[in-house]
Design a protein around this nucleic acid. Sequence first.
RNA 1: GCCCCUAUAGCUUAAUGGACAAAGCCGCGGCCUUCUAAGCCGUUGAUCCAGGUUCGAGUCCUGGUAGGGGCACCA
Length: 651
Amino acid sequence: MFDKERQAIEAKIRTYCAQNEIPLGELKWVPIPFSGEWGFSTSFFQAAANEARTGKKIAVPQRAQEIAEQVRGPVSDLPGIRRVEAVKGYLNLYFDTAEYARRVADTVLEQGNRFGAGPAKGERVMVEYAQPNTHHSFHIGHARNAILGETLARIVQFAGFDTIRASYPGDMGLGVITVLWAYDKFYKDQQPQGIHERGQWLAKIYVEAIKLLEAKENETPEEKVQREVREAERREIYRKWDAGDPEVRNLWLETREWSLEELRDILCILDINIDVWFFESDVDGPSKAIVEELILRGIADDERPQGGAVIVKIDEKLGLTKEKYRTNVLLRSDGTSLYLTKDLALAKVKFEQYQVDRSIYVVDVRQSMHLQQAFAILKLWGFKQAEKCFHLGYGFVSLPEGAMSARRGRVVLFKDVADEAEQRALAAMGERTPEMPESERRIIAQQIGLGALKYALLSVDNNKDIVFNIDEALNFEGHTGPYIQNAHVRAASILRKSNVERQKSGAFDPSTPFVRRIASLMPRTTVARRPSRPGGPGLSARTGCETASSGQALRPVSFDYELTTHEVQLIDLISRFPAAVEQAANEYRPLVIANYAFDLANEFHSFYHAVPVLQAGSEDVKNARLQLVAAARQTLANALWLLGITDPEVM
RNA sequence: GCCCCUAUAGCUUAAUGGACAAAGCCGCGGCCUUCUAAGCCGUUGAUCCAGGUUCGAGUCCUGGUAGGGGCACCA
């Protein structure tokens, strides 16, 4: 936030060092890491080390301190800097808090829900996530994927990238056919009531079907015959599906829609709006076409004449002598395409039709080899975007009793956890807000419950596995989502009672013309209709830009009084938000924002406890603190938005 | 056999190569006639092992140990 000042200081340091023949090198600036201190800092170890390398006999730490002390002079008399100290090789510059605090507060309140957002980057990013299989259950592992992907999409969007959210459901293959077979055989024309009941029913049918199709231990000859008959029936359905048999296709489309209805509802609960839906079955055809192109270009080798498959010897084509990407199959010897083939075809669509510059894949870490292979082939193919393909892998979610297994039906369903979360939040609300109407109470409870769940999944670095413990995930105290939401509530409460006017948070709406006209770009894909909220518009606190306008606006204030440590630290943290956004976007790491949001909430809670606002000693101090609270509330709201967590006014 | 990921406090996790390794949970002790106690304050406690690079290593490199994942016609 204080780049201009920093640059001016750095220029002075450089001039001084040039005159005194100190080989400075690059200067790294960081916020002063001591709590209660506000300013920025740099060190001179590198410069001292550079000198040492020229042959001078010096001890680096001492020399660094000498340089810091020398440099201190030229920069000690700058406006806005209260104090400069040289200590242990570091140069610490402390802000004139009155001036800088006012600037931070003004900036936040002026920029509102855009505070922290980066300038337009002029690049288009597509984030692909939410790729569950249809005809299956949506479990907590899928939720990690969806939540991680959405948060990443929000981060890159907020950082200034033109962002497209893409979903790629697997709607074909043996698993899907297995469900069709069992449904057709045992449950034809039945269906339970309720979107989720119906979606989950398909997963139950799948588990039953697997039991019937798997060989048991000590299988009797009769059982074996029976099983083989079933297997033949399933193969026949697959053949019919592949041949486009109308009856099978209709059954497939109808049951697929049941899964998709449930998926859309879940995404709605998670506040996720997918821009583009790519179905695996849609890229199946095009994927076969690209195989010919890859053969013609000499990337793929056609071994079909020898009764083999079409393969890519990736290492060989890249000229690698050590095995790295190995060899992979593009087309089976029976002419059908594979997962890799489809991903290549889809990438081509992303690059050519959607003109994406960067392509992010939020996919289970177990597929990292597969994606590395795909990226390598895209590079061979000549797509310059291949360099900016990124696999955001994440560790899988298991249960305390072991891995989840869709085949065995041992899964924790997202919907069940979400419902449980709401119940627990409702219970935790208790008698806290007795006057709240029941309908609103339920909405808040859902927001708190989901806040806890989302934060639990986002506060672990993405490459780590998570053992999902529902009691830990739905904890509302300590390092949790509700803790952050509660800080927002407390800030909002103070502002409400102070009777000052403020902008309601309102949704950050960075949608570009491009995203809005996506619908016309790719006729083969289905474009999401915006799902409607089952609970009505009140469910999302961010769907409107209403302004709550009771009372007078915050007046320009002065922070020209003795600020407490808590106030200094709070302002310091607020001012770091834009840098956190930038870092998270550069590193594609939602965790950075999750950590930041907690730190800010933590600081706000401490401030709240220790520093009176409405009861402040003087009117001037009260007004300044109100500004600070308003700025903190806005920053908390923006950070929560990035995490996909609502910013309730009450809880 | 080869490749990738992980290893920090009793537990779950943080830490752009930089200053005293930071929190949460659990335990113990305080704080509701100040703005929401889903909170605040206090308290014990940690970098898997061995080398190396560097002025400086939890972080980078090499080799171990332990756990997880992956290696062409599954997705």
